[in-house]
Nucleic acid binder design. Structure first.
Lengths: 197, 197
DNA sequence: GTCTATAAATGGATAGAC
DNA sequence: GTCTATCCATTTATAGAC
C-alpha cells in the first residue's frame, strides 16, 4: 500500500521526499550509519533519482542542514518579533524552540546533536550559525539597553539559553521524566535571575 | 627518529599508545573518518597488534570512552571533595572542568562533542553517565540543604552547569575570543544568582 | 605478542538504457 | 527525470608466519 502511493512521485516532490527520508534516517542512525541504499529503500526511489537531485551524499546532507538552520532561524525570528524587551523575547524564543523540539524532534536532534563537521568539512561551527547568532543578538541587545547587567557577551548568552538548550538535549535523550514544556517557566526564570540588572 | 623510538613498544605500553593515538584521531576526525589503518600508521604499530589488544574497532572506542568518563568523574570528585557548600563545590567542579578542557582539549572534545551512540549502540546517554550524575548530585544535595531554592532537579542542574558546559563547547569550537578561565567567575556567579535560596 | 597478506563485505559513485 | 547494473576504492576482520 505504501509502495503504491509512492510509485508516481517525481521531480520536486521526489526531491522533498528524499530530504524528508534523509532527515529521518540521519537523525535516527547518524550520517555514517546511513547508506544511500538505506535512503533509496526507505523512500522507494532509485539511486539514480537521488543523484539527479543531489551531487553526492555530502551535498544531500548540506542541503538538509541548511534547510533546517533556516527553518530554526525563522522560528526564532517569528517568536521574538512581537516582543520588545530582552526578557520577553528570550522567553518567547525558548518557548518556540521547546515547541519545535516537541513537534519535530528529528529536526532538533539533527541540528543540536549531530557532529556536522565530521562530514561537512567546510561547515561553520554550529554556534556561529544564524539561529544561534540570533539568540546571542537578543542578549547583547538586552545588555545595551541595560535590561541585563554588564557581562561578557558569551557568558550572558550561555546563561540565558544554556539551560534551555541543555533541557532540549535531555528531552531528546529521553532523560526527562516530566514534560519538557512544564520546565519552561522555571528555566527561564532562573536564567533571568542570573542576568537581570 | 620517531620510528626508532617506537620500534620496541610492546605489551601494555603498546596498548596505551594505541589508546592515546585513537583519542587523537577520533577527536580530530571522528570515529567514522578514522580507519584502523589510520591508527596503525599514526602510532607505528601493526593491525595484528591492535586486534590482539582490542576485540574490534567498537571495543577500542568503548575502552577509550570508559577510561575518559572515569577520568572525568575522578576530576569532579577530587574537585568537590575539599568543599562543603553546594556553591563552593559547583564552583570548584566548573573550574576543574575548565582546566581539564584547557589541559586536555582532545579528551573533552571526545566526551562532550562526540555522538557516542552512533557507534556504541549499548552506551547510555552521556547525561546519565557517572560524571554528569555526580554534577547533578551536587545540585540536588544543595536543594535538600536549602542552599538553593526548590526547583525541578533537571532545571536546577541545567542552570548550575548549563552555562559552563556551553562555554567549554564554545571554547573547543574556537568561538571564544577571551581565555576560557577568565569567564569562570562570571558564569558561575550568574548560575548562582539564578539558583540561590 | 607482533607481523604481513588477504579475505569478504560494503559503500559511494558512474554509465547508459528507458 | 528515473531506472538498473556495475565499477572501484575502502574498510573491518581473519589467517597464519615469525
Amino acid at each position: 500500500m505504501v509502495k503504491s502511493e509512492q510509485k508516481s512521485i517525481r521531480g520536486e516532490d521526489l526531491k522533498a521526499k528524499v530530504l524528508q527520508t534523509t532527515l529521518k534516517l540521519f537523525s535516527q542512525q547518524g550520517y555514517f550509519n546511513t547508506s544511500l541504499q538505506d535512503i533509496r529503500k526507505s523512500c522507494g526511489v532509485s539511486i539514480g533519482a537521488i543523484y539527479h537531485h543531489f551531487e553526492n551524499k555530502e551535498a544531500l546532507a548540506k542541503a538538509l542542514f541548511e534547510t533546517l538552520l533556516d527553518e530554526m532561524n525563522q522560528v526564532i525570528m517569528e517568536a521574538m518579533d512581537p516582543h520588545d524587551s530582552c526578557r520577553a523575547q528570550s522567553h518567547a524564543v525558548a518557548e518556540a524552540l521547546f515547541q519545535l523540539t516537541l513537534d519535530e524532534p528529528q529536526k532538533m536532534q539533527f541540528i543540536l546533536m549531530a557532529q556536522h563537521r565530521e562530514y561537512l568539512p567546510d561547515a561553520a561551527p554550529i554556534c556561529s550559525s544564524r539561529p544561534f547568532q540570533s539568540m546571542k543578538d537578543i542578549v547583547e541587545q538586552g545588555m545595551r539597553k541595560k535590561e541585563i547587567r554588564s557581562l561578557d557577551d558569551w557568558v550572558a548568552a550561555s546563561t540565558m539559553f544554556g539551560g534551555a538548550l541543555r533541557l532540549m538535549n535531555l528531552h531528546l535523550d529521553g532523560a526527562l521524566d516530566r514534560p519538557l514544556m512544564e520546565l519552561l517557566e522555571e528555566t527561564m526564570d532562573c536564567a533571568w535571575r542570573g542576568l537581570k540588572a
